[in-house]
């Protein structure tokens, strides 16, 4: 029986063979960061190792680290007695899954991932591993995503309706990843003014500088005085929904783009007019298919409510268990508004 290559520690995972942590929440000497979302990347680590595509966004989030090693996808490095390789996770720009090899064992670790196509980042690439640590943000069979194209059509229809009625179309979505994905999906499909909440501007600039083609968008702060935003699309983070900022958009219709919008009650409770089911995470079928694609015999669920998926995989004859890295995270009712979904 081999020893586990990873153990939960510091809010993330610790690898003794390589003496490094993956996505720790507390300061540690050496951190491998899967992506720049706040529940994975924190400031204060001695050394950062991350995918090259993710460096600008990470630097924006945690400040420019003094000691940062950027890795190309698929390019292995030796860390202590282990060998570590990053692969595209398809979650946001520069997101990665981690392969760790040591002593004849191969472990795969997901930060967050999705299998649906996304024009802003490289698609998920499976690799063979013995043990697969899978995020489970949407770990119930009710979470099945509609086709992205269909969702974008629905968003366009709704926006067009707002253009007809000369009302602002305020679309709430997470500021890193989702906002840019929407702008990239809309690119070439419509020409109409788009405005950004201030919190989204620097991240969107980051994406543009890396060559991601997106619909042009201006920050709301640059709008002329008295602008009514009739027929305009306004992107804003969910936290802006209850703030005085929203008063700038009289008569607006509101939408929220998130996997949580699959459930009607989640939308109605927050009072959004429309919910659009588009997620940067894997849905239930994708979580299960990915286990098969990785060829893993053992699955450990992390980040989210993994008990149900673990039990389901166990029923299918796999070794499966649930590790609770961060007890307080990833309850939909707690943080559907503040965590990328």
């Amino acid at each position: 029986m081999n020893e586990d290559l990873l153990t939960p520690d510091a809010g993330g995972l610790y690898c003794q063979a390589g003496d490094f942590w993956i996505d720790p929440l507390k300061p540690v000497p050496r951190a491998v960061i899967t992506h720049a979302h706040a529940d994975h990347a924190r400031s204060g680590a001695g050394q950062y190792i991350t995918a090259r595509d993710g460096v600008p966004v990470l630097a924006h989030r945690v400040g420019q680290p003094e000691d940062l090693q950027a890795l190309d996808y698929g390019e292995p490095i030796e860390l202590g007695a282990s060998r570590v390789t990053l692969f595209p996770a398809g979650h946001i720009l520069g997101s990665a899954t981690v392969r760790i090899e040591h002593d004849g064992q191969t472990w795969g670790v997901s930060g967050d991932f999705k299998r649906a196509p996304d024009p802003t980042c490289r698609g998920f690439e499976p690799f063979a591993c013995d043990v697969w640590l899978s995020e489970v943000t949407f770990g119930l069979p009710v979470y099945r995503w509609p086709d992205t194209r269909q969702v974008m059509d629905d968003i366009l229809d709704w926006w067009q309706g707002c253009i007809r009625d000369n009302r602002p179309a305020v679309l709430f979505c997470y500021a890193l990843g989702k906002a840019q994905r929407i702008l990239a999906e809309l690119h070439g499909r419509i020409e109409a003014p788009v405005w950004l909440h201030g919190a989204m501007k620097p991240l969107t600039d980051c994406y543009r500088e890396q060559g991601v083609a997106m619909l042009p968008a201006r920050p709301v702060s640059e709008a002329p005085k008295g602008e009514k935003f009739g027929g305009s699309l306004v992107l804003a983070p969910p936290s802006a929904a209850g703030s005085p900022w929203i008063r700038r958009f009289p008569r607006h219709s509101s939408g929220f783009v998130s996997g949580w919008m699959r459930i009607r009650g989640n939308r109605r409770r927050r009072g959004y007019d429309r919910g659009f089911v588009l997620s940067d995470h894997a849905d239930w079928p994708a979580l299960i298919n990915t286990v098969a694609d990785m060829g893993a015999k053992r699955v450990i669920t992390i980040h989210g409510n993994g008990e149900v998926l673990a039990r389901h995989l166990h029923d299918q004859g796999l070794e499966a268990e649930c590790w609770n890295l961060r007890q307080t995270l990833a309850r939909p009712a707690d943080n559907a508004d503040s965590t990328p979904a």
Binding site: L140, P141, V142, I263, G265
Partner: peptide
Amino acid sequence: EESYEHVGDLAETMHLL
């Protein structure tokens, strides 16, 4: 049952599954 507990509405749960 797990899904129903999460969604809270049986008609919707059935529809989603």
